[in-house]
């Protein structure tokens, strides 16, 4: 057994909250920008910001997963039933997998024609070319549907945290907030 921890590190908490803000922002921005008309002054800027933050979040997520693997897992709160532990585990892994697949599918939309993605005019992520036929359409549908899915799962995740905080009155939410 690893030496069991009872507190999240500052780094772990930072990863969590930065990702939370980024995911909600990206979803809102994406939801809004796809309806922009061609004559909107945001027509080019909004997708540029969306893609740039998406790539940065992908890098952050990779670092986050390395951090997660390297750090010993937190001891589950003793009052949590095995059912609750299972549900939260599935939700957490689901969120990680969705994050990666959504970001990768987004990358595949914009790079289907060999064009790279400019990240805030700071660096360019090169294209891997067209990996499968109709890539931009297929990746686009995956990106869209899974974005709704992750928001649904995020709501479940947040409602769960609030339930533990206000109804069960345990430390689930506190240990992700407190120092």
């Amino acid at each position: 057994m690893n030496n069991v921890q009872t507190k999240y590190s500052v780094l772990t908490k930072s990863f969590h909250w930065v990702s939370a803000i980024a995911v909600i922002f990206l979803f809102a921005l994406g939801f809004w920008m796809v309806e922009l008309t061609y004559y909107s002054s945001w027509y080019k800027t909004a997708p540029h910001i969306h893609k740039s933050i998406g790539i940065l979040l992908f890098i952050v997520t990779l670092l986050r997963l390395i951090n997660k693997v390297k750090q010993p897992s937190l001891e589950p709160i003793s009052t949590h039933s095995s059912m609750i532990r299972l549900i939260s585990k599935v939700t957490h892994y689901g969120l990680y997998i969705l994050l990666l697949v959504i970001m990768f599918s987004g990358y595949l939309i914009s790079t289907a024609d060999d064009r790279g993605i400019d990240v805030f005019n700071f660096f360019t992520v090169p294209s891997m070319g067209e990996l499968f036929p109709n890539q931009e359409d297929t990746a686009g549908l995956i990106h869209e549907y899974l974005a709704y899915t992750i928001i649904g799962l995020t709501v479940l995740h947040a409602v769960g945290a609030l339930k533990h905080h206000f109804i069960d009155k345990d430390d689930t939410l506190k240990r992700m907030l407190n120092k």
Binding site: I109, S110, T111, A112, D113, R115, E130, Q135, E136, D137, G140
Partner: peptide, 10 residues
């Protein structure tokens, strides 16, 4: 010759 535009046109 632009995947994003083609996606939009389709």
């Amino acid at each position: 010759n632009h995947a994003e535009r083609d996606k939009h046109v389709r």
